[in-house]
Design a protein around this nucleic acid. Structure first.
Lengths: 356, 356
DNA sequence: TATACTCTTGAAAACGCTTTCAGAAAGCGT
DNA sequence: ACGCTTTCTGAAAGCGTTTTCAAGAGTATA
């Protein structure tokens, strides 16, 4: 047995006594094949342990059956559910998933594009605009996640209802807890989500005739460390505030840490709310009040729109996934009896009165 | 301009006045090319916006420059840092990353293997043994993460020092906090990590001459829900215990929840410790004492070993990454003053005495 | 019985690169 | 000048599929 190279379609054909074209046909089900022959082919494939070479199929058929995912970095609690949704949906649609993170120097890296994928999912600003233009001009299927396309290029976008979510949150803080001086911890520069959350924030303020105070806006960077220092700075500067709307849940953690360190009790002294409702949000203490963004769904929906594009169908220009207010404790609500005890202040100070 | 198909190497060659072989050579740097010609080629590539088709290269060169990652499911706090390490290392080594989760029915799915990757990273038991045998018999590069190969096949393994980590943890519980009836929440059936952690647990018990009590061992499934019900069952059954060693941090969360619900205070009544030190561990309250597993490093190391295998070099048969004890509060240690207040029991019962 | 279809099938032409192979050009020692 | 290397280059042969295209075998129609 000198010939130990993996079997090809030709080997299968010989073994089954048919032509390679026929093997290809039973492989792809493109054209009917006489039942008995098809069985012989299948048997031969089984016996030879034949696995078609992906590259050859791609080269011949011009379809990669692969979609690419581009993201700025792999981190934060947000990432995992999104990837889960994307992977699952891609799988179901029969696509493989190629993942690239662009946090590192992209120079000289084999890029994701027409040459190795059928379409691209692009998260936030993980791709240079130039490349985006190039792909667009090629009519290459692309879907943006949490990012509006530059120059209103007609590229489908999937995002969550940031503005509404933020507005609900702020409204709750104002109406239920009487907060009026609410800090907004903005996300990273140029981040779409952050911009819309700020609009929701302002809208809610306006509704309640509370003047916008720019000294209450600072950057928290969707990151717990950054949020931590941001709140510390506010405290040092003696800025007066009674609530913090963190740009996302990760930032909320940082905010809570800074407040605890400064002996400001959450939620009695200061309410803290986040955004996303990542898995650990409910396990913080106090449990984080936040807005649930259907992260996994966003991933699934993105794949759905992308496959449409790939199939030459029309895709939704903008898909906004509904967000939902998740009220827990960090705003001041809903202290379950078993956790209330932990919240009672040591020195016997005013213990919190359940507001619901 | 009727010809709008993407340019091929032939177009570039024509445009630069050289043969396609030469273009290929400047593309890959395989053979020296006259400087002036090389420049012409590069210029032509630039002008035509030439991007080599991945499939064609793979087909011709038999190298995919892609590695595959197979995992049971995308979830848990553990996942994200591991993927981060893998992606980064793969990127640095010049490989693309194909991700497959096998949580769903794998039937009829285009699989990962020789036909579309140069090597595979296999996490826990995300691959049927039969397929593993097949790949091994083909000498296909494979590295296992957190899983010992069946029948001691010579497949490299990357794992963390589970036994030592667990032993350190249990030792700490016994020596520093005087715990003697320590529950062990085992991970999912057949999970390698879990087995070794149990060995560490037993070893530590033995060292301190504490008899092993099988009624203290139950399954927590590396999952917060499962751990929750497991602890509840223990409580209902009236099993007496003063500490819980959760199989991992996710399970620790579930355990803490169940204990709180049963009004057993952590860490005063019961110490709880986890394993992994996932990002949120420090933010739980009380902050989780656990063992730090260098998850991201595991990912990087796995890629390193895999690329060795791909390059025909020898790989390390077993790489055990060092673990490190992370002492926080849930064992009973280190109550920072600002969090102590939250731990004081409501009814004015014995407040905890700092043990450090 | 001839005519026109409908089904199946195989031969062969792509698909876009890499890589061997041999030859041309250039450099070198004598 | 003469052979001998050493460099560089192009022609052409794959790589393993899919996909025409045309033809053969039946079947139904006339």
């Amino acid at each position: 047995m000198p010939k130990s190279r993996p079997p090809t379609i030709a080997d299968v054909a010989r073994h089954a006594g048919v032509s390679i074209a026929t093997v290809s046909r039973v492989l792809n089900g493109t054209t009917p094949v006489q039942a008995e022959k098809a069985d012989r082919v299948r048997l031969a494939m089984e016996e030879l342990q034949f696995v078609p070479r992906h590259a050859a199929r791609v080269l011949a058929s011009k379809r990669t059956n692969t979609i690419g995912l581009l993201l700025p970095e792999i981190s934060g609690a947000f990432f995992s559910p999104m990837l889960k949704g994307i992977e699952a949906a891609a799988h179901e649609a029969g696509y493989d998933l190629l993942v690239h993170s662009t946090q590192q120097v992209t120079t000289a890296r084999r890029r994701l594009g027409e040459h190795n994928t059928d379409g691209l999912l692009i998260f936030t600003n993980s791709l240079a605009p130039g490349e985006l233009y190039r792909l667009h001009s090629l009519d290459f299927p692309v879907v943006l996640l949490h990012q509006i396309p530059p120059d209103s290029l007609d590229i489908p976008v999937i995002a969550v209802e940031n503005k509404d979510g933020a507005a609900m949150l702020i409204k709750h803080l104002i109406e239920t807890h009487g907060r009026r001086r609410i800090v907004y911890l903005r996300g990273p520069e140029g981040h779409e989500d952050s911009v819309w959350r700020e609009r929701g924030y302002r809208e809610a303020l306006e509704t309640h005739a509370i003047a916008f105070d720019s000294s209450l806006i600072t950057s928290g960077g969707f990151d717990d460390e950054e949020a931590f220092t941001a709140i510390q700075r506010l405290l040092e500067d003696g800025i007066d505030f009674d609530a913090v709307f963190a740009g996302d849940d990760d930032a909320a953690i940082g905010a809570m840490r800074a407040l605890k360190l400064a002996e400001r009790v959450v939620p009695q002294d200061v309410s803290v709310v986040g955004f996303d409702d990542v898995p650990f949000a409910r396990y913080l203490s106090p449990a984080l009040t936040t807005v649930r963004a259907p992260i996994e769904q966003v991933g699934r929906e993105a794949v759905r729109q992308l496959t449409r594009l790939i199939n030459g169908e029309q895709a939704e220009a903008l898909t906004l996934m509904r967000t939902e207010l998740v009220i827990r404790e960090s705003c001041g609500c809903l202290l379950s009896s078993l956790q209330k005890e932990f919240l009672t202040r040591a020195g016997g100070e005013t213990s919190y009165n359940e507001s619901l």
